[in-house]
Simulated assay, not measured.
Amino acid sequence: MTQMPKEYYELLEELQVVDFVICDLTLYLDTHPDDYEAIEQYNQFVKKRKSVKKQFEKQFGPLTHFGYSYSNYPWDWKDAPWPWQV
């Protein structure tokens, strides 16, 4: 198992928390599609997720593949440890 810097785990945990909130709000909005405040919260967390993901990838490399994350030059997908390797 690869040991990463403390900030790696903090950002990854923050991303997991934000993903949980987004998932929970998605389920809620499926049954309450007219809840304006919930939609606002959902959009705020989506924006936050993009920011945290960008910060994480800038420091530690891509999180996802198939066009969801940019790559540095040279191709760096192979360089960062996979989340299950840390």
Rank of each mutant, 00 (worst) to 15 (best):
L25G: 06
R49L: 05
E57Q: 09
P62G: 00
Y73N: 07
I22M: 07
F60I: 03
F45E: 07
Y8I: 04
F56P: 01
T31P: 01
H32G: 10
K50G: 15
Q55T: 12
K47P: 01
L63E: 01
T31V: 14
Q44D: 13
H65V: 06
D34T: 14
S51C: 08
Q41M: 08
E40Y: 14
K54F: 09
L29D: 11
K58Y: 05
P83S: 03
V21F: 14
D35Y: 08
K58G: 12
Q59T: 12
K6T: 13
F45V: 12
N72P: 04
D76C: 08
M4H: 03
Y9D: 07
G61A: 04
E10V: 12
D34A: 15
E10H: 15
Q44N: 12
L27M: 15
K50R: 03
Q55F: 07
Y8A: 01
W82M: 11
K6M: 06
V21R: 13
P83A: 01
D24F: 15
H65R: 07
K50F: 00
Q3C: 11
S69G: 08
V86T: 08
K54V: 03
D24M: 13
G67T: 00
T31D: 11
Q85H: 06
Q59V: 03
W84I: 04
Q41V: 06
E7K: 15
L25E: 08
N43C: 12
D35F: 11
Q41C: 08
Q85V: 07
V18S: 03
S71I: 04
V86G: 03
T64R: 09
V46I: 13
T2D: 08
C23I: 12
W84G: 03
P33A: 11
M1W: 10
E13A: 10
V18H: 01
G61P: 02
Q41A: 13
E40T: 13
F66Q: 05
